[in-house]
Design a protein around this nucleic acid. Structure first.
Lengths: 244, 244
DNA sequence: CAGTGGTCTAGACCACATC
DNA sequence: ATGTGGTCTAGACCACTGG
């Protein structure tokens, strides 16, 4: 463990944090598993428990791990309770009812990445991707039309059948079936007019306003692994955001 | 300082944090000022420096204060650099140029709070409010039409002339002229069709899609002090959001 | 130089979960 | 009873700022 001053000096706890992220990235501990206790990690890295604690605090603040007093520290997962399954879903019902949407798959196809998508995903133009479309529904009322683009190399063997057989959220599916763990996303929101095809799917009229949510989703180290665009009817829903 | 166990037990550093927020709320230190050093605060509250540090860490994480190594800890302000003046502005230009918008005031009037607005602001229906409208412009191109509702009791003496004479952001104005300090906000986003009047102001056609951003803004202790709705043309701009 | 926040350590004790 | 994370303390030293 480097502690001396140097041009590229970083505090010990940041170095420890990086080492833990590396282990998460390498799959040393799986989502939902406990990572070693603070005392064990302190021994492994030859630092004090307080330094490990500060590293883990930073990881917990970014939701890479979850601390549970008396039990341990666990790798964050999209698989367990609803709250963590839908951590990235910002759509809420106008009537305030806390309901999570159902997903209905429209189609899955193979394609080659267009230039712009490739750039956002860190691929070369024309690399193979999987494109899927789905509708999110609240009580059978369609609300969001999603188009999702995935690098084929990361999601080998993804088929319509497997996705339809899966019970759980999209990111739970990524994590469980492909070992792709989602940790952050960056979204751009705009308002657009519905085209005829979208209007039909969302039971609107062409030209009706839609909230367009473009998202680049990343795994550990901010490596992008998914691009998606959701077209959202906001007649009965809205997008919520907290600013601090 | 209570340290014993009790039904309403709170960790010491949380109690300290609450005391510091109370002082901020009471105006003991003004925005931009340094608060006392960690050592002084530790002496005042009869706790260790480490406990004060943890309290201040929590305040800094929520942007109520800003730490500067070697100099001190300062009360957060919307008045100084651009980055802090526009901390709550999530609108970005499509072309990526990092420009901040100019504000052009349309009108200022007195009114009585409608039921829904009153509820959101914690007022009684019909209490006096100030309603102002303005346009945000990038390089003279109108992008956002804002309608802003303020409790008249908190903003006594706000006039069109004073607002137009002020150089700086809206929240800087609140803070400097009325001692109203903005610390958090909750937004709801929808897509709507432009009406004729809005379309004219934003140089669009009636029916064009707009991003509607409704915001309730709060001061210390999550007490709401502003309601606003921004109608945003997203032809040349978008709303950005980070999810973690 | 003195004063500030930032890091790191070691140890004590508390709160919670499990056996 | 044991092991986990959570709090609190005291002290040493580092890094940055400004007189």
């Amino acid at each position: 463990m480097r502690t001396a001053k140097s041009p590229s000096f970083q505090p010990l706890y940041i170095q420890i944090k990086t080492l833990i992220v590396d282990s998460l990235d390498a799959g040393e501990w799986r989502p939902g598993d406990a990572i070693p206790s603070e005392i064990e990690l302190a021994a492994r890295f030859r630092v004090s428990q307080g330094t490990v604690r500060k590293a883990i605090d930073a990881l917990a603040a970014h939701h890479l791990v979850v601390r549970r007093q008396g039990k341990g520290t666990f790798v964050a997962t999209h698989t367990e309770e609803k709250a963590s399954m839908f951590r990235f879903l910002r759509i809420r019902r106008n009537d305030g009812r806390a309901e999570y949407p159902a997903s209905r798959l429209i189609d899955v196809r193979r394609a080659r990445a267009p230039a712009e998508t490739a750039r956002l995903l860190g691929l070369k133009t024309g690399e193979p991707v999987i494109v899927l479309r789905r509708v999110l529904e609240f009580e059978d009322a369609p609300v969001v039309l999603d188009e999702i683009v995935l690098p084929a190399a990361l999601f080998k063997g993804l088929t319509r059948a497997k996705l339809e057989a899966y019970r759980g959220s999209m990111y739970s599916f990524f994590e469980t079936r492909f070992g792709v763990r989602i940790v952050s996303a960056r979204e751009k929101l705009t308002a657009i007019a519905a085209d005829a095809a979208t209007a039909q799917i969302l039971q609107l009229r062409p030209g009706d306003p839609l909230l367009a949510v473009e998202r680049v989703t990343s795994t550990y180290g901010d490596r992008p692994v998914e691009w998606r665009r959701g077209l959202c009817s906001t007649r009965h829903c809205y997008y919520v955001n907290e600013l601090r």
